[in-house]
């Protein structure tokens, strides 16, 4: 892993080198000896190559705020895995959770869908279930027509991630 932070549209690399008495970091290629003392959960004192600096920090998800030198610096924590394909486990594919019959299909191939949009209504075991888009994108394939039956695991809908414009 390589920790990366975005500040004013520039990406900066902070590479930990080792942690003994001090923490050795490489910040944008410059090696620094850093010590940190937290006064409380947000207020810390950083000693950088021997010089002390007071700062305050708070984090909200991947947004980091540092107050230092009379200014607030807003940084984005870049998730190295962030560009890993959208939408969790199965990507845009929705498979039948159990055997059943398609009652209604709300979309056709090429339709734009938002995450969570209902795309199909199925019925199995006397229970109707709405099939929802697992990610925003374009409908690539509709697995079954209304009235058609399907088995467990059959592909019901396939959505291509992204490329959806408002």
């Amino acid at each position: 892993m390589q920790p990366k932070y975005q500040l004013n549209k520039t990406t900066h690399l902070v590479t930990p080198v080792r942690r003994a008495d001090a923490i050795t970091l490489e910040v944008d290629g410059h090696r620094l000896d850093v010590r940190l003392h937290w006064h409380d959960g947000h207020h810390g004192e950083l000693t950088l190559n021997g010089a002390p600096y007071e700062f305050y920090a708070a984090q909200d998800g991947n947004k980091l705020f540092i107050h230092f030198g009379g200014r607030v610096w807003q940084l984005g924590v870049i998730d190295e895995f962030g560009d890993a394909g959208e939408g969790g486990a199965a990507g845009g594919r929705v498979r039948a959770p159990m055997p059943g019959v398609v009652v209604e299909v709300y979309v056709v191939e090429g339709d734009s869908v938002a995450e969570g949009d209902s795309v199909m209504l199925i019925e199995s075991m006397k229970l109707q279930t709405e099939i929802k888009a697992s990610l925003p994108g374009t409908v690539k394939a509709v697995g079954a027509e209304p009235g058609a039956s399907f088995d467990k695991g059959d592909l019901l809908i396939d959505i291509d991630a992204g490329e959806r414009r408002e």
Binding site: L7, G44, L48, Y53, A57, I66
Partner: peptide
């Protein structure tokens, strides 16, 4: 906006890295 001096950036980035929940 002022452009940050290198020393400032180093403090901010070090503080950011060490404050980062993941870190």
């Amino acid at each position: 906006a002022d452009t940050a001096a290198r020393e400032q950036l180093q403090v901010v980035l070090s503080a950011a890295y060490l404050s980062d929940r993941n870190t």
